[in-house]
């Protein structure tokens, strides 16, 4: 049976949330829930779900503020995520030095906690003048088809 999907977004100016809503809307064959990372706790991961993370980059390659509490709590509580699958989509702007680094912090942490990433690493570059929605939706459809 295919897993339910939980989309976690980490945002500063709302682009990741905006895209997360469109991503959820195209997943029609199973249950989807969308959470702001700041409303999600590191104890909530369940192996019956596929986690899709979408997260922007701020400061100098840092996490957006809404993602920091979850990141910090995962880092200190070190939950065992060896039966967790996730896919990840990073938002950034290639005019900055640390392009798309925000999501990579999560990717590294999830991997170190034993979780396994599925599919391509998704990216959106704000330097294109577009919002991530369109390419995040296409990417989501590919991830869902693979999982």
């Amino acid at each position: 049976m295919s897993k339910n999907v939980v989309i976690l977004f980490g945002t500063e100016s709302g682009n990741a949330e905006f895209a997360a809503e469109d991503m959820a809307a195209v997943i029609t064959d199973r249950k989807v829930q969308v959470f702001d990372m700041s409303d999600f706790s590191s104890e909530n991961f369940e192996s019956t779900n596929l986690y899709i993370l979408i997260c922007s980059t701020h400061g100098e390659g840092d996490l957006p503020s809404g993602a920091v509490p979850l990141y910090e709590s995962m880092k200190s509580l070190k939950p065992d995520l060896s039966d967790i699958e996730y896919a990840i989509f990073g938002l950034g702007d290639s005019s900055y030095e640390n392009y798309s680094r925000g999501s990579e912090h999560f990717d590294a942490l999830l991997t170190s906690l034993g979780a396994s990433r599925i599919g391509e690493y998704g990216r959106h570059d704000a330097q294109t003048g577009t919002l991530p929605n369109e390419c995040a939706v296409t990417w989501t459809q590919e991830i869902i088809a693979q999982s």
Binding site: S13, N15, F18, A126, Q127, G129, T130, L131
Partner: peptide
């Protein structure tokens, strides 16, 4: 600041 200007596309909706 093209990336910042793009936020307007959220509001268009």
């Amino acid at each position: 600041h093209i990336g910042t200007k793009a936020i307007a596309q959220q509001f268009e909706r």
